[in-house]
Nucleic acid binder design. Structure first.
Lengths: 233, 233
DNA sequence: ATTGAAGAATTGTTGAACAACTTTTAGGGT
DNA sequence: ACCCTAAAAGTTGTTCAACAATTCTTCAAT
């Protein structure tokens, strides 16, 4: 029966009903689900029942399906015809693919920093400082968030909203796989100094060196994640 | 009245009904509409009425809205709350944005050609030859298609399906603006030799020179399109 | 011309219904 | 026990009809 298969997170969603009332119901539903997925409360592989979720969130199946469609296109959910939607499970090849994307986009954006639009460079530094401040407060989830902002700001140097958009989807998807790291604190903490280093090179006008540093950075992060995935996978 | 406002393309769509019957109705509807948009039969700014289109294609409003959602996310349509969906109209800043994306992604992919996956290089050459063959037959629309394949193949050198995906959306969106060119034949024809040149450099292992050539190529194409847009805009 | 309000038309969302498909369950045969 | 098949149950795919919310149109008054 549908109702007995409800696990804890389905009931939790009922609390989010208050946050759903304004314009574009489907978009807000997608927002709520996106938070649940990226924060790791909805684990990869979980099936999202239309009936259960619709009841929990207080929206109709049609509206819920529109929200699913949005998140499927962001690659946070996968849709199997006549089988339902599931929280995406990233395989090793997906991790390689993600870093392939990031190597191309982020390193190339760094190299073009000289033509960056006004304010873009400052956003990079702001993200670095945001991370350092969060680390001083030992707020490790926020360190992770600041790290995302850092990489998003790097892409922003290219000055293309379409590129920003694609990168934000990739970075959101990336969070699906961070949860496999046993020690997220150590994982994120190690990159604080690296971010600062790249930022300093950038403000020194040494874009090529910054790009090279970022490339090593991405190689190392990919290696660690692949190792963690193959260990338990 | 809804029915009297139907223009020619709405009735044409009725012929496409035969192509709509299999799995995932919404996806096939989206495919039909995508063709209409990228081929220029549906001009930018056109409003897509849910009632008219649903009747013309023989699908319900809900299914049609799912198709709209798909194409909106591909940026071929824009969705204005409570106002409907429209074929996207590209402004000058959109063209700059598109080329900003392409400069980062395509040039960077070219530079990494040495690490390209097996077969990726051959696909670049195949696209060049496809264009040359189409030109010999004076099949100009197909020259345009082959040109898209060429750029898609360049992105494929990076070996990331996510990058391929983002690029295919950008290239599809690009077709929205090609229709403003008064002489599409001359526009596409000029780039045949350029494509061949870049391809030869690539197979010579001179990736850096190829990337530089492509960058000039993109600069010039952007300049021409911006000029065409500001002329009549 | 401009403004404002009534009316028409369109989109946003819901709920129910049925078809299509998948998964589960239950039996039979070996 | 094991494997295969068929019925049953459950879920998704799609349509339809209705109403609420919002925008667009019309038109009179100033």
């Amino acid at each position: 029966m549908a109702h007995t298969s409800s696990t804890h997170w389905v009931r939790e969603l009922t609390l989010e009903r208050t946050a759903i009332s304004g314009s574009s119901t489907a978009a807000r539903v997608a927002g709520v689900l996106r938070n649940y997925v990226t924060e790791g409360r909805l684990l990869p592989g979980t099936r999202l029942s239309e009936e259960d979720l619709g009841e929990a969130l207080g929206v109709s199946r049609n509206t819920l399906r529109e929200a699913f469609r949005l998140l499927t296109h962001e690659r946070l959910l996968v849709h199997r015809f006549h089988r339902g939607v599931f929280v995406r499970t990233l395989a090793v090849e997906d991790v390689r693919d993600l870093y392939g994307f990031r190597r191309v986009v982020e390193c190339s954006s760094l190299r073009r920093a000289a033509q960056a639009p006004a304010g873009a460079l400052d956003r990079v530094r702001a993200a670095v400082e945001e991370g350092e401040a969060a680390a001083r407060r030992s707020a490790w989830p926020e360190v992770g968030t600041a790290n995302m902002h850092f990489h998003q700001a790097i892409v922003g140097l290219a000055g293309s909203v379409r590129l920003d958009d694609a990168a934000s989807h990739v970075l959101a998807e990336q969070r699906l796989v961070f949860h496999v790291m046993a020690a997220p604190r150590a994982f994120h903490e190690a990159y604080l100094a690296e971010n600062r280093h790249i930022c300093d090179l950038l403000f020194d006008g040494r874009a090529e060196e910054a790009a090279a540093a970022l490339e090593r950075y991405l190689d190392e992060a990919e290696r660690q994640l692949v190792e963690a995935l193959t260990a338990d996978g």
